[in-house]
Structure formats: structure tokens, C-alpha cells
Design a protein around this nucleic acid. Structure first.
Length: 689
RNA sequence: GGCGGAGUAGCUCAGUGGUUAGAGCACCGGCUUCAUAAGCCGUAGGUCGAGGGUUCAAAUCCCCCCUCCGCUACCA
């Protein structure tokens, strides 16, 4: 076996809010694998942390009149508190504002420059502060003198963009395509699951672009002074800053001996949205540039919807805060300790869907699973055996010889299956296997009818059964420990075991006379109705909070013109179809637009474009090629010979490989109806004004 | 439009050429009383999205279509 510690990572989390069930999922999965490795006796280095150098974080702090670092301290602590409550056994928690991270990042940028992996370039464009991203001109629309993202996704900004021009330092990512493809070609285990691997290969094959790694900002890790044009610039938050945490934490460029012992990561987990671009492409390219070994396995898990809907901060029904939720379950289970609810959450997360697929996190589904699998299945099984042991034998293990021990072999082979499932991150499969055993043991009791045998005085037979049950419970405790550690430990203790649990002692026999403590239920049953009441009450509180926050945000944004000089209220207020507020322009402004009448002399569809027609338009004094997005309203035949009004002095632009030298005027309403402006009977080239 | 994923029991899903398509939950009936209104057994429930094809044999392979989800692209 490999002597190197098993190095496992989660992403470092962007601290814009407290952790939700999505964050918790990655943590739980990583924790399960880490605990599994430790259980098998392997040293583990389990790394997680927070990403704190985003400009948005600094501005959020400033908006509250607070010191950014203090703001981060608080949120980073909140993350750690949640992880501790969820029993996440991380070995290291790195914050990107720490010196042990900042220093090596600065040095890495210098090395990249010295090694010729960076080059200077200029770029300019519409920049979004919250997203820390430049957008291409075609992604941007103008409204009321401000520029906005044309089709912002759920988590992209709806606010105005800032025009930014700067000298940038570009990482020559394009140089690494071939190398990466070669590495990935015959190593399917490096990128999992298979579907993500395919996606990544296609992404790289489609061509990589050099990427700017510097930003002119006052928050973040500064560029080293040995790099030209470094003044006033910080490192892009993703590259190499955030990604490099995986190397700085184990001691890269700081503690060579430690780093050499731990590197490379054996398993890096993340959700699918940051897999392809960042972890499977940029990150290994960075490592290649630095001459470091690549991670052995990258694994992308899927997304959760919550109660059937996409997670949205503004939809209270989709926000599941792990601690609050665990508390709710525990409360509805006869006010049990929170760790009971935590294990319900952990169990459900790992059991409900295959790791790697998307799934739906149903809060009542979780409670139902808790009741059926944990309380009725495992908990009750343990209770039956333990109570009988106390009733018939005073809690002391009776002497036994097994006439047939073939069932022990079966357990060994089942444990091997469970082991293999954990190794391949098939948590659902591992737990399914264990619960087959739970069902089987419940059947044993049914078949043996120990209560009847006890009545008949056949205590020997009862002793055999109870010994088997004890071993089953012990076996289950070991096998489920990675998934539900606190419950497994409670079972372990309830069996009277005090030595450390490990993978090899799952089937260790119980000595005659071994004393077990008086039994209490491991998983008290939850009352679904009670849970729903508690959940509903919390939901209303949350909805109220969101309302208040919205109002607060509005007033805050009105009061702080730092990032966005104007027009935020207009941007946020719902668009009123009636009576648009007039914004006057001068006659000179209008004169800048040259409108002409033209006659369509050719018209055809563009292949693979469902909205575009390619037109040749005669302006009298010249011919123009114009692309118009009207294919869903006009056929090429209808267009032929038609008179149209065109904007004649619009800057040309290429679409779909064709240059468009102007624009057709058309009217459209909210229902999507579109009609071309008809100039009537004037000759081609006539001026419109 | 392109690329990818998905469509199987009321619900959540497993099942990549081979009996009569499975599991869990929910439902219904029976048994049981050691146990947490827990356990066990059983019934019922499916034209495997539609259609076509290959095959002795198709949920599974091929073609075409429909629906949903994600990413992405052209209204200058």
C-alpha cells in the first residue's frame, strides 16, 4: 500500500453567504471517503477552506462599513462551525487571505513569468465586478446609458457593467492543449465520471484561449514586483490564486519535505460547474507549467434541486441550511441531539442518488428515509437484539459455538463489496449493501422466534442468535462509519466496545461475559407532521428575512454609488410596458443615424441559423450585405424586391461568418410579433429623417 | 440551432442483448409481539416517452420523432 497520506480536497468556498446543502454535500462526500481511508488505517490529509480574495467580498464588507479581513474572519469561522457540527473531519482549513497562501502565490506568478508562461497583452471590455469576469460585446446590451449582461444566468449579475481597459498578464493556456489531451487520453481514472471526462476532452479539443490572470484591484493578492506592469494589480481570483490552495496548504514553496510527502492529491471533489474549465483544464495546466505532478483523480458530483426546484437564494423553499435542517429533524425525533439530525442529513445525501448524478433533495424525503432506514431498519434491529440480551442474559454475552459459520464468509465478501463501493465513491451502493444485511438480520429474528424459544427454555438457541446479531450490529457500525460517524460510534459504544473502530475488526467476536450497557434507542423515530410544522414555521421566518434583505439591499445600493454611478433603480424595478419614461436626445444626436431606403435584391437563409436572413440590399449608390434576425417572420421569397429602411452608417459586424453592413428597421411588440418598417414607394437610396 | 443528460410502478430510482422488467417508499391484505405505532410474508400496480428497424430474442443496438433539464450560439 501507498505510504503517502491520502490527500483529498474539496473546493475552497466563496464566502458570500453561510453554507447551504450544496456546499455540505461536497463536504459530506469528501468526509465519508476520508473517514473510510482512516478506518482502513491510511493516513489522510483532508483539505478544505475558504476563498476570500474576491472583490465582491471586499465591497460587501465596505458597504457595511467594515474591515474586509474582519468580515472574512467571521464568515470563515461560520463555515468551520458548520463543518464541525456536520462532523466533517478535515485536517486543514486554508484561507486564501493567509500568509502561507499569499506568499507562495506571489512566487508562483513570478515563476510563471520567468518561465515564459505569461505574456503581456491589453484588453478592454465590459467587466462585471460581482462575477469578476469580462464579457464579450455580443453578451452585452445597452439600456438607459448603462450596459448590462444580455442574458444573465441565475448567478450572474443583473446590474450594470463597467467598461474596463487595462494591461493584462495572460497565461498561455493554449500551449497546453496537446499535453493535456495526451495525459488524459489513456487515463480514464483521472477524470470522473465518464460524462464529465468526455465534456472536458471536447472542451480542450475545441481550442483553448490564453487567459488573463491579473486584475486592477485593491483587494486580493498583489502581483510580484518582478513582473512588469504589476503596479496596482492583483492575481485573478481563480488563477492561480484559488486553485493554488491545493498546493500551498500542504506546503508548496514553504515546506518542501512536507509537500513532497503529501503531493499529489489522490482525489479532488467538486460540483460539476467548476469541473471542466477550472479543475480539469486550468488547474492541471498550471501544474504542468510548475512542473508538478497532476492530481490522480478529479471527480465531479451533480447538483441538487431542493423540493423539486432549483436552489435560489430568493426562494425560501429551496434554501436548506444544514444546521437548521438537522436541528429540525432532531426536534421532530423527540428532541434528540442534533447529531441524530446530522446523520439523517448525511445518510440521505449519500444514499438517495448515485454520486455523480443530479438529484432532488426532498426535506420530507429525508425524514422518511431517516424513519424507514435508520429508525425502523437499523435502529430497531439493534434495539431488538440489545433488549433481548438484557432480558434473557442480563446484558452479558452468553457463551456460544456456531454450528454453521458460513454466514461469516458471506459477511466478509459483502464487506469487500462495500469497500469497493467506497473506493469508487459509490456511496449509495455501499449503503444499499449494508441495508440488505439489516433486512436479512431482521428476517433471522422472525425465523428464529427467540421469544418463543426463551419461553420453552431453549436459551442456547437464543444465545446463538444474539451473538450473531451483535456481530451484525458491529459489522454495520464499521461499514456505515464513513457515512454516519456519530451514529456508528454510538452503536459501537452501545455494544460495549471501547477500542478504536477499524475496518478489520468489523467481525471480531464477543467474549463470553462481555457486558453491554442498558439499551436506549439509537435513532428515535421522527414525527413527520411535527417536522412539517417546524419546517413551515422556519420557512415563514426565512421568507420574511428575504423580504427585509431585499429592502435593505435597495436602500444600500441607492446610497452607494461606488461601483455603479447611475440608474440602479431603473435596472431593478420591474419594467413597465406602458408609458416609458422619455429620455430626450438632441436633433444632432438623431442626425448621427443615417437612415436610407433600400431594395432587397437577394435573400437567403443562413444554414444552421434559425433567426438570420442574409440579404443583399441596393441603396441606389451601393450594394450592401445585411444580416437580419427576421427569419422567423419573413421568408426569403417575401423579402425579394421589398423596400426596407436600413441604418446605413452602423459599424459592420460579423455573424455566423458573414459580415453585416447595416441594420434593418423593424417594429416588434411584447408578444414577439415583428413587422418591417415599410417606406412605401420611394426610390432606393432615399434618405429617411 | 448545436452539444450533453434524462424520459422505466403513485413517488425516488436500479437495470447497456437472454426466463414472467426489479428495489425502496407509499397503498392494500395477512402473520407476529423480542423491538422505536417497529418486524416479517403476500397482493396490487408498468404498451420501459411515440413510431419504425436489426435480431431466434430489445428497456438495452440502429433510425426518426416528441417532452423535460443543462450548457452554448445568430435578432446591428
Amino acid at each position: 500500500m501507498d505510504l503517502k497520506p491520502f490527500f483529498i480536497t474539496t473546493p475552497i468556498y466563496y464566502i458570500n453567504s453561510t453554507p447551504h446543502v450544496g456546499h455540505a454535500y461536497t463536504q459530506i462526500a469528501a468526509d465519508a471517503r476520508a473517514r473510510f481511508e482512516r478506518l482502513r488505517g491510511r493516513e489522510v490529509y483532508f483539505l478544505t477552506g475558504t476563498d476570500e480574495n474576491a472583490l465582491k467580498v471586499a465591497r460587501a464588507a465596505q458597504a457595511q462599513g467594515r474591515d474586509p479581513l474582519g468580515f472574512c474572519d467571521e464568515l470563515a469561522q461560520a463555515f468551520q462551525d458548520v463543518w464541525q457540527t456536520l462532523n466533517i473531519s478535515y485536517d486543514d482549513f486554508i484561507r486564501t487571505t493567509e500568509e502561507r497562501h499569499r506568499q507562495p502565490v506571489i512566487e508562483v506568478v513570478q515563476r510563471l513569468w520567468d518561465g515564459g508562461f505569461l505574456e503581456l497583452g491589453t484588453y478592454s471590455g465590459w467587466y462585471s465586478v460581482p462575477d469578476e469576469t469580462f464579457f464579450r460585446p455580443e453578451e452585452v446590451v445597452e439600456r438607459d446609458g448603462n450596459h448590462y449582461l444580455a442574458n444573465p444566468s441565475e448567478d450572474q449579475t443583473k446590474g450594470p457593467l463597467e467598461w474596463t481597459e487595462a494591461v493584462g498578464h495572460f497565461f498561455k493556456l493554449s500551449n497546453f492543449s496537446d499535453q493535456l489531451l495526451k495525459i488524459y487520453a489513456d487515463a480514464p481514472e483521472r477524470l470522473r465520471p465518464q460524462s464529465r471526462r468526455n465534456e472536458t476532452l471536447r472542451f480542450i479539443e475545441s481550442g483553448l484561449f490564453d487567459t488573463s490572470i491579473s486584475r486592477a484591484q485593491d483587494w486580493g493578492i498583489p502581483l510580484p514586483s518582478g513582473v512588469p506592469e504589476s503596479e496596482g494589480k492583483v492575481v485573478y481570483v481563480w488563477f492561480p490564486d484559488a486553485l493554488l490552495n491545493y498546493a500551498t496548504a500542504p506546503g508548496y514553496l514553504a515546506d518542501d519535505e512536507r509537500f513532497k510527502r503529501i503531493w499529489p492529491p489522490d482525489l479532488q471533489l467538486m460540483s460539476k460547474d467548476i469541473f471542466t474549465r477550472f479543475h480539469a483544464t486550468l488547474w492541471p495546466a498550471l501544474l504542468l507549467a510548475l512542473g508538478l505532478e497532476l492530481p490522480r483523480e478529479l471527480f465531479a458530483h451533480g447538483f441538487w434541486t431542493v423540493n423539486g426546484s432549483k436552489i435560489a437564494k430568493r426562494d425560501p423553499e429551496t434554501i436548506v441550511e444544514p444546521i437548521e435542517f438537522s436541528t429540525q429533524i432532531a426536534q421532530s425525533a423527540g428532541n434528540a441531539e442534533i447529531r441524530v439530525g446530522v446523520d439523517a442529513l448525511r445518510y440521505y445525501s449519500l444514499r438517495e442518488v448515485g454520486f455523480g448524478s443530479d438529484g432532488d433533495f426532498s426535506t420530507t424525503g429525508c425524514v422518511t428515509r431517516y424513519n424507514s432506514d435508520l429508525a425502523n431498519g437499523l435502529g430497531n434491529l439493534f434495539q431488538r437484539g440489545a433488549v433481548m440480551l438484557h432480558n434473557y442474559f442480563g446484558g452479558r454475552v452468553p457463551a456460544t459455538t456456531f454450528s454453521d459459520s458460513s454466514w461469516l464468509d458471506e459477511f466478509k465478501s459483502r464487506q469487500a463489496k462495500v469497500e469497493n463501493s467506497y473506493e469508487t465513491l459509490d456511496f449509495s451502493g455501499a449503503l444499499t449493501e449494508v441495508w440488505e444485511v439489516v433486512a436479512m438480520a431482521n428476517r433471522w429474528i422472525e425465523e428464529e422466534k427467540p421469544w418463543a424459544k426463551a419461553k420453552d427454555g431453549d436459551l442456547d438457541a437464543v444465545a446463538v442468535l444474539l451473538n450473531k446479531l451483535l456481530l451484525v450490529c458491529q459489522w454495520v457500525a464499521v461499514c456505515t462509519f464513513p457515512a454516519i460517524p456519530s451514529s456508528a460510534e454510538r452503536i459501537w459504544a452501545a455494544l460495549g466496545r471501547s477500542e478504536p473502530m477499524n475496518w478489520a475488526n468489523a467481525l471480531q467476536p464477543f467474549e463470553e461475559g462481555h457486558q453491554t450497557p442498558p439499551p436506549t434507542p439509537i435513532f428515535p423515530r421522527a414525527n413527520l407532521k411535527t417536522f412539517e410544522q417546524i419546517e413551515n414555521a422556519a420557512l415563514q421566518v426565512r421568507a420574511q428575512k428575504i423580504k427585509e434583505q431585499d429592502m435593505q439591499n435597495q436602500t444600500e445600493q441607492n446610497g452607494t454609488p461606488i461601483q455603479t454611478p447611475a440608474a440602479i433603480p431603473e435596472a431593478i424595478a420591474p419594467v413597465d410596458a406602458e408609458a416609458p419614461e422619455p429620455t430626450y436626445i438632441s436633433i444632432d444626436d438623431f442626425a448621427k443615424v443615417q437612415l436610407r431606403v433600400g431594395k432587397v435584391i437577394e435573400a437567403e437563409r443562413i444554414p444552421k441559423a434559425d433567426k438570420l436572413l442574409r440579404l443583399q440590399v441596393d441603396l441606389g449608390y451601393e450594394k450592401r450585405q445585411i444580416l437580419a434576425g427576421i427569419a422567423q417572420h419573413y421568408t426569403p421569397e417575401e423579402m425579394l424586391g421589398r423596400s426596407v429602411v436600413i441604418v446605413a452608417n452602423l459599424a459592420p459586424r460579423t455573424m455566423r461568418g458573414y459580415e453585416s453592413q447595416g441594420m434593418l428597421l423593424a417594429a416588434s411588440d411584447d408578444s414577439g410579433k415583428l413587422a418591417l418598417v415599410n417606406p412605401g414607394d420611394v426610390s432606393a437610396g432615399a434618405v429617411v429623417r
